[in-house]
Simulated scan of single mutants.
Amino acid sequence: MMKLHWSPRSPFVRKVMIVLEETGLTEQLEQVRSVVAMPLPPNEAVMADNPLGKIPTLVTEEGKALFDSRVICEYLDLRAGTGLFPADPTARVDQLTWQALGDGLTDILLLWRTELTRETGPWEAVTEGWLAKVRASMARLESEVPDLRASGFGIGLVAVICALGQLDFRWPDCGWRDHFPALAAWEAEMAARASVSANPVVNDQGEGENEITLGRLAF
């Protein structure tokens, strides 16, 4: 049985869980709740499998540790032959580009939240730059909704879904749907897909943990 270092709050773990659902491999997996965070000491159990100390980390039946989410998702797709990473060069590049955009947007949101929890306060020049990049990323996705709709369900769409889920989880009052209506309509359709709805972001650390003033994320 495979082992996954897992958290219900991690957008990158969610990405892997959606792919597991799509590939039909969920039943072949043991989920190990693993707490990791930039301000915390490294999790020794995770470090034993991944020297970077990050999740998700997947350990195969043969004992081979795979990381990060991009490698894990491609491994699962190759194993199941699902086609989330298309063989056609044009379709593949499209999916990989959307994956890069979705993962990059998620990275910014995670780093931004960590920056805002610093005791000395956030570095405004950095957060202002992140704000500009988040706005630009969302505008790009809004313009590409017709292409997202026309493509088959692939890894790029999974990454974008998880980025938008992270936006909702950490900035629930940012109102992005009012500013990007085509993207909002597409996201609602994707949210109804079985693999997505079965793997929501869940805060299992208590109600107060998520209540952090997250600055000026306004569109």
Rank of each mutant, 00 (worst) to 15 (best):
A48G: 14
L78Q: 15
R113G: 03
S143F: 04
R14F: 05
R92C: 12
F12T: 03
V32C: 11
M47L: 15
A37W: 06
I155F: 12
V13L: 02
E187G: 08
L214A: 12
L105C: 02
G154F: 07
Q99A: 09
L116F: 13
E22H: 04
K15T: 00
E61M: 06
A80K: 06
Q99Y: 04
S151W: 03
A45K: 08
P41F: 09
R33M: 00
R9V: 14
G121A: 12
A192D: 09
L116P: 04
K64W: 02
L217P: 06
A163E: 01
P56R: 09
L214M: 15
A218E: 14
R113F: 00
F180K: 01
G215A: 11
G121Q: 10
L25A: 14
E189S: 12
L40C: 01
F180E: 00
S7Q: 03
A100P: 02
V126I: 07
T127Q: 07
L109P: 04
V19Q: 07
G165F: 10
A182E: 13
T57S: 06
S34T: 08
A37L: 08
L58P: 02
G53C: 13
A184W: 05
T90W: 03
V160W: 00
L148G: 11
A163R: 00
E62S: 15
L141R: 05
P86E: 06
G63K: 12
T127M: 00
R70Q: 11
A139E: 14
V46R: 13
E61C: 01
R216H: 13
I212E: 13
R70T: 12
E189Y: 03
L110F: 04
T127W: 08
S197G: 02
D168G: 07
L183E: 06
E128S: 05
S143L: 10
F67D: 12
